[in-house]
């Protein structure tokens, strides 16, 4: 027997062995117990299959990957179909369809025909090319892209542009300033101190402006302009480094979650 046959068979045997280990033979509801055992066993095996990708691509990873793709695609399609079409659109389109699909009819809403019509236009792509109406699908594309572009322009201008400007333009460059003498005699390096406050405001104002200069396209980045733009990219880089460092924590916690599952729920090593 070659490896192509041996590996799947061996895996199935190991899987069933594990399943038996996890199966609670004293359970009242044996089908429920079987399902519980199956969930834990399969979860653990699939976890290991995905981890095996770290070593290299292999049949186990391929198995998990292909299964994942198929099942998740179907999952999102079913969820989308039931919640967006059946529960959302149908009850406003036709009493007959609503009844057939067990949904309460909620009254006609003509505007739900718009997406349905555009959706059907999209499906012209599925018709044979000889019909030559596939181009109708572009209407839908045009509709979605244009209306979301129109919506996003204002929303983004407000949230990303105006609100960022308005929260930056209120920073005094000399906070709590009562004179140079006071500044020197009360010099304080603590976090809430005047010096740090001042430094922070300067860094934000200078950082924002130099960052914007870095993004400037229509002027060559040379001379003083180049120096400011250089400062801008430095600020960006410090930030990127810092964000990267900050993220490590969260990523490791995900691994901890997985390994805890493996050790506790699956292998039962720790309690």
């Amino acid at each position: 027997m070659n490896r192509k046959v041996m590996i799947p068979i061996a895996s199935i045997i190991v899987f069933i062995g594990f399943l038996l280990l996890k199966f609670d033979f004293e359970a009242v509801d044996s089908s429920q117990a079987l399902w519980d055992a199956f969930i834990v066993t399969a979860g653990g095996f699939l976890t290991l299959m995905i981890f095996s990708f770290l070593y290299r691509d292999n049949p186990f990873y391929k198995f998990a990957e292909h299964l994942y793709v198929g099942v998740s695609a179907a999952y999102w399609m079913c969820v989308g179909f039931w919640s967006n079409i059946v529960q959302q659109a149908i009850p406003h389109l036709s009493p007959w369809l609503s009844e057939a699909l067990d949904q309460p009819f909620l009254g006609y809403k003509w505007d739900y025909w718009i997406p349905i019509a555009f959706g059907l236009l999209l499906l012209t792509r599925l018709l044979p090319d000889s019909l030559k109406i596939g181009w109708l699908s572009k209407w839908t594309l045009a509709f979605i892209v244009a209306s979301t572009a129109g919506l996003l322009m204002t929303a983004n201008l407000k949230a990303n542009f105006i609100s960022q400007i308005s929260s930056t333009m209120s920073l005094p460059l000399l906070p709590d300033w009562t004179g140079f003498g006071d500044f020197v005699s009360n010099f304080d390096l603590s976090y809430g101190g005047q010096f740090i406050k001042m430094l922070s405001n300067w860094v934000i104002v200078v950082g924002v402006i130099s960052g914007l200069v870095y993004f400037f396209f229509s002027k060559e980045h040379t001379g003083w302009f180049g120096r400011v733009s250089r400062l801008g990219i430095w600020v960006l880089m410090v930030t990127f480094g810092a964000s990267f460092g900050y993220t490590v924590m969260g990523r490791v916690s995900l691994l901890v979650g997985r390994l805890t599952f493996l050790f506790r729920d699956w292998a039962g090593i720790i309690s």
């Binding site: 990303n160 960052g211 993004f215 930030t239």
Partner: peptide, 14 residues
Amino acid sequence: PNLAAKRAIWMGVG
């Protein structure tokens, strides 16, 4: 600095 950089990025993205 993080705030400054993010604001510059956001304004540019806007």
